[in-house]
Design a binder for these strands. Structure first.
Lengths: 167, 167
DNA sequence: CAATTAATAGAGTAATATTCTAAATTAATA
DNA sequence: TATTAATTTAGAATATTACTCTATTAATTG
């Protein structure tokens, strides 16, 4: 009586609700958020209705987080990218919350992660040039309450930059 | 006779072709690549025609690089993010090119930058969990020809993640 | 101040998204 | 294995949007 419960085929390794067709749709949408349902339907060999429904389901279930437009950094004066490591002086929950709030108010900080290792956070900062970065560093980042050490690593070249989580 | 050449109003600090209206449109599109021309037009107080034309111009001039769909990492089994520092053994142009080629073949590596400092490159790697990351590290990343030191920094939490270059 | 250029509004057409109904496929049950 | 139920899909119909064209307005220049 040790019969295994048979999962319905679908994709052997993926979260119940996301099947291979969904992944194929996601793959296409990742590359082009403005692909038409018609185009996608043709590529996944379905009619528009099921594709339309699947996309709506992916939106509502939160698999699709956002349809974003990606802008050329240099063409909007954000050609300088800096990776910034920071440690806090005090690590209480409250102090951390305050820091997070401050970071979210800085538009130049496009990413911020809590990390393992010597520093507490890693930031990705975009600026126009060294002058504006210096200004940001000295007059805004370092002015944040509870800020400890700050270490900057400059990005000299972009080798790869994608948002493909599904392939 | 020292009269300054009067730039036509527009925006005082931005590349000739991008004016404030363009920026307002970009701002909206950044947040939602699927916003309709009608919606955008209403928000920037114009009719659909000029908005449509401006968007097309932004696409063709390369200011808009891509309409991307952003997917929830955890929902597609990419819940682990690792920042990875690597140095090469040999730094000749040819060795560098080969390395870049290898990196581009690794789907798990979603970003790669040439950086200043002790290491040569910084990678952002997305994996399902520690097991799969270990496999990636040992069997794929470290197997790349000319690979020197590799140092992993684990992302314990996402504080901020945006693609807003215009605000 | 006239002439030229660029940008915009509004209307019309083409294409797409969305909805609805019915058919077909798949799964579950007796 | 037949039968029922549930799910998925296709195809048609409608609503919405994108895109194009023409005329008007505003701005710029000599």
């Amino acid at each position: 009586m040790n019969k295994k419960i048979e999962k319905k085929e679908q994709s052997t390794v993926l979260p119940s609700s996301i099947d291979k067709t969904d992944l194929a749709i996601l793959k296409l949408l990742q590359e082009n958020a403005r692909a038409t349902v018609k185009e996608i339907a043709a590529k996944v060999h379905l009619s528009t209705t099921p594709v339309h429904e699947r996309i709506k389901r992916l939106e509502q279930s939160g698999v699709i987080k956002q349809y974003a437009t990606l802008v050329d950094h240099t063409k909007v004066k954000r050609g300088l990218m800096v990776i910034c490591y920071v440690s806090l002086k005090e690590h209480s929950k409250n102090a951390g919350m305050k820091f997070i709030k401050s970071i979210n108010e800085l538009n130049e900080v496009v990413e911020c992660y809590n990390i393992s290792g010597e520093f507490d956070f890693m930031l990705k900062v975009v600026e126009e040039n060294m002058d504006s970065y210096y200004d940001f560093h000295v007059n805004r980042l370092s002015q944040i309450e509870n800020m400890g050490n700050v270490q900057s690593v400059f990005v000299m070249g972009v080798i790869k930059q994608t948002h493909q989580l599904v392939w």
